[in-house]
Design a protein around this nucleic acid. Structure first.
Lengths: 214, 214
DNA sequence: CGATAATTTGACCGATTGGTAAAGATTACA
DNA sequence: TGTAATCTTTACCAATCGGTCAAATTATCG
């Protein structure tokens, strides 16, 4: 009997293990080739099982991708959710940047999976973008605007502030090949994330200190 | 007789036109699906010609991609090349940002083509990254460091400064779908580029003014 | 015009794609 | 231990992939 959807909730040990192995492999393959560029054979091989066996757990390629995206979205929104209105504005933004940078360092494949999907027109998550994501950003934008109004943060466009934080941090995961090519071997080691953190700290703290700019 | 490579340089009008039409179509398709995700049939249809006809002008899918990437790289490096050591540091950086932002607005497909390639491991342009790109960045990083040493710019890591400029500007092309989803209809019109320019101006000018930060 | 080169087409190729059918092997559990 | 449910494999499918070929068509130019 097919395991997914046609079952009363019990999950076998084998089922649990294999689904996890498949998702791990799918993350690897999807994140480096995009949805269309990835093949089930590739994923099956990466998961160490035959293609029909894989398809016993996930009926289609889309099923795998959808589940990955669903899981990802929560993880993805979490750091922004943590930004608290009652905290110190600069400190809140700083630690948001740090969290995002840590995600770029520790979960580059997730970042690339997301980037691939957006880059290719987000056909499979456009709803999430226009729904939960947009609402969360709107909420946090209001918080940032409030901070500015209170004179605790330089006045600035909160949306583009958030975009710039996404861009600068995810860049280290999505464009990793380029970053390492440019930095070379001596500068491009693991220290690049600390260097990036230092630079971004400086940029944003100086750039957003109240009393700065328009 | 095959036109490419096996010819003594003469290029027919038809040849010129069709090659351009093909490259235009290839840019469209490659930039939205990546190399592996794109198919020759798709490109041929977008170019309004039959597949064998397309393959008469470009012998392989890789040939099209390679030519696009070669052309792109020059365009891509141009804005950074324009940054002059003898100019005013903040003004030079500002106009570099503006140029990059204009490229994101006017050539989003080129940006996405590049992003797709990097994201998927840059298998077809890794040489360019480690060669010309790296050298140019090294040169300009030296310029920036010099500016800082002269006290005309806040001391900062020049490499990560450049990365952050790439990231924040290209974001508006590569993640366009997301940007528009978050901004919604009223905020997401063409004005988003001007808003972005304003925000980035503020961020970088305040963040890099001499006497700021570490 | 005629002829030669350039262009376009339809028919086709083997390999790979996403996915299925059914039988065999293994596991869980009464 | 028996057996029913779960898991795995082999063999296969139609569709699509990148690309070829030869014949038909069109453009160029003396």
């Amino acid at each position: 009997m097919k395991p997914r959807a046609a079952r009363t909730q019990r999950r076998t040990r084998i089922q649990e293990e294999n689904e996890e192995r498949i998702l791990e492999a799918a993350l690897e393959v999807f994140s480096t080739h995009g949805f269309r560029g990835a093949t089930i054979d590739q994923i099956a091989e990466a998961a160490g099982m035959s293609k029909p066996n894989l398809l016993y757990y996930f009926r289609t390629k889309e099923d795998m991708h959808r589940l990955l995206m669903d899981r990802l979205l929560e993880t993805w929104l979490a750091p922004l959710k943590e930004m608290k209105p009652q905290g110190d504005p600069l400190a809140e933004i700083r630690s948001y940047i740090r969290r995002k940078l840590e995600m770029a360092r520790d979960f580059p494949r997730e970042s690339r999976l997301f980037a691939n999907e957006i880059l290719q027109g987000a056909p499979r998550i456009v709803d999430a973008l226009e729904g939960p994501l947009r609402e969360l950003v709107e909420e946090k934008a209001a918080v940032i605007r409030q901070w500015s109004r209170q004179g605790r943060l330089a006045p600035c466009d909160p949306y583009h502030l958030i975009f710039s934080i996404w861009a600068t941090t995810q860049h280290y995961a999505d464009f990793d090949v380029q970053v390492r090519a440019v930095l070379g071997e001596k500068r491009g080691g693991e220290g690049r994330f600390e260097d990036a953190a230092r630079f971004l700290d400086q940029l944003y703290v100086s750039g957003l200190k109240p009393g700065q700019g328009v």
